[in-house]
Design a protein around this nucleic acid. Structure first.
Length: 397
DNA sequence: CTTCCACAGGAAGGTCTGGCGG
DNA sequence: CCGCCAGACCTTCCTGTGGAAG
């Protein structure tokens, strides 16, 4: 019986026309044919980099802008076009893209090893002395006259400033080739605490990407939806709503795309052929819950116990949860789990961290004679609450 | 106005891990 | 391979403090 229904489910799924034609187009990483509302930025970047076509090294560029403002997209687009043109004109140009955060470039070893691997050199992930890797890198790069564009995305996640320093001076070590760096950061104050020499060298040219407004987001979504979805799959206003919601959150195009994609996914799963406005709301809730659950999951153990203590107190319908209350519960749970409890001082810091993560809201209040403490409130929706509880139970027991 | 609670949160130092240069 | 150092993570000890109660 159960198997029969499962077969029905499969049949249903296969017979039903999908909403999606090409779901990838709603992914932020997808590179569309054109990049709407970034014409100026593209032109600016291209005019800085165009010197490569004459075989001259372009200035280093530093690009700022919040998440989802098209920085990565514009860079990749311009790089792609330049490479195509260079190839046509028989110029030597090679561009590399590296997301420093994803690849965890905290050492220069990893950085150079990554580029060497892209150049087709086999470099073990660890083992060789750094200067040897560095020399190999120089030799490989210098072996034939060429210009290299290094696009370093999320460059602010490189904590070791020596890496940046080395990079900015690398051209002095090269005879034939030249290397230009395009740094991308969403942290506007990143260069403030850099060595002034590194700073001026990295940002010979600067570009700032402003957030998209709601109308521009609509255009982006419309463009992507045309590729991704069956015509007529969206009921009117869906795109407008996604755009408006994302515009509220500092004009993040990634967010807008996520909203639309998840809305479509939920609608499809529920067997709908039309994506209505309700699904956008559902998508927003889902994205929210997923985000929270993800944060909860990736917390270190002790932090999870503290959070669980707060959840426990919340379930007792206790209002005005104070640090002391949390600490008592926390110690009990630690005993049950056979964990050695941390000091109250440390737990106090963990509470602050949970506050910064937006999972709880902790404000310092004074109860006069009865002391000064933090008033702790959980800051998450009921759905997220239940899911987090489940996750914590599973992780902790 | 003073007292005094129940912590906040700064400072300094300890321990451990993991990567780096030699 | 080894000693060294940086950074994450904690502890210990500490001073500071808003405001109800007296």
């Amino acid at each position: 019986m159960a198997q029969k229904t499962l077969q029905d489910l499969f049949d249903n799924f296969l017979n039903k026309q999908s909403i999606f034609i090409n779901k990838e187009a709603l992914q932020a990483a997808y590179t569309p044919e054109t990049v709407p509302h970034r014409e100026n930025e593209i032109k600016q970047l291209a005019s800085i980099l165009v010197t490569v076509l004459r075989g001259e090294k372009p200035s280093n560029v530093f690009i700022y802008g919040k998440t989802g403002t098209g920085k990565t997209l514009v860079c990749k687009y311009v790089a792609q076009e330049l490479e195509a043109r260079a190839q046509r004109d028989n110029k030597h140009l090679k561009t590399f893209y590296l997301n420093c955060k994803m690849e965890k470039v905290n050492t220069s070893y990893r950085l150079f090893a990554h580029f060497l691997n892209e150049l087709g050199e086999e470099i073990p992930a660890t083992g060789l002395p750094t200067d040897q890797v560095y020399k190999t890198f120089l030799n490989t790069v210098d072996s034939k006259k060429s210009i290299y564009l290094l696009i370093l995305d999320e460059i602010d996640s490189i904590t070791d400033t020596n890496i940046l320093y080395d990079l900015t001076r690398i051209n002095t070590q090269l005879k034939n080739s030249r290397i230009s760096i395009i740094g991308i950061s969403n942290n506007l104050s990143f260069t403030d605490d850099l060595d002034p020499r590194v700073k001026s060298s990295l940002s010979e040219e600067e570009l700032v990407f402003a957030p998209y407004n709601a109308v521009q987001l609509q255009d982006i979504l419309t463009q992507r939806a045309a590729v991704a979805l069956v015509p007529g799959a969206l009921s009117s206003g869906t795109i407008e709503k996604c755009a408006a919601l994302a515009a509220q959150e500092h004009g993040d195009a990634r967010r807008a795309l996520d909203l639309l994609r998840v809305a479509c996914e939920i609608a499809e799963r529920e067997g709908q052929e039309k994506v209505t406005l309700d699904y956008v709301d559902k998508a927003q809730k889902k994205l929210d819950v997923d985000r929270i659950v993800e944060v909860v999951k990736t917390q270190p153990r002790q932090s999870q116990v503290v959070l669980y203590s707060i959840i426990y107190l919340k379930e007792l319908n206790k209002q005005d949860i104070a640090t002391g209350d949390v600490y008592e519960v926390y110690k009990n749970i630690c005993r049950q789990l056979n964990l050695t409890p941390l000091t109250q001082r440390r737990v106090s810091d963990l509470v602050s961290e949970l506050d910064m993560l937006g999972l709880i809201n902790a404000t310092v209040i004074s109860k006069g004679r009865y002391g000064r403490t933090r008033k702790i409130k959980l800051e998450i929706s009921p759905t997220a609450f239940e899911k987090s509880k489940e996750v914590l139970k599973r992780e902790l027991l």
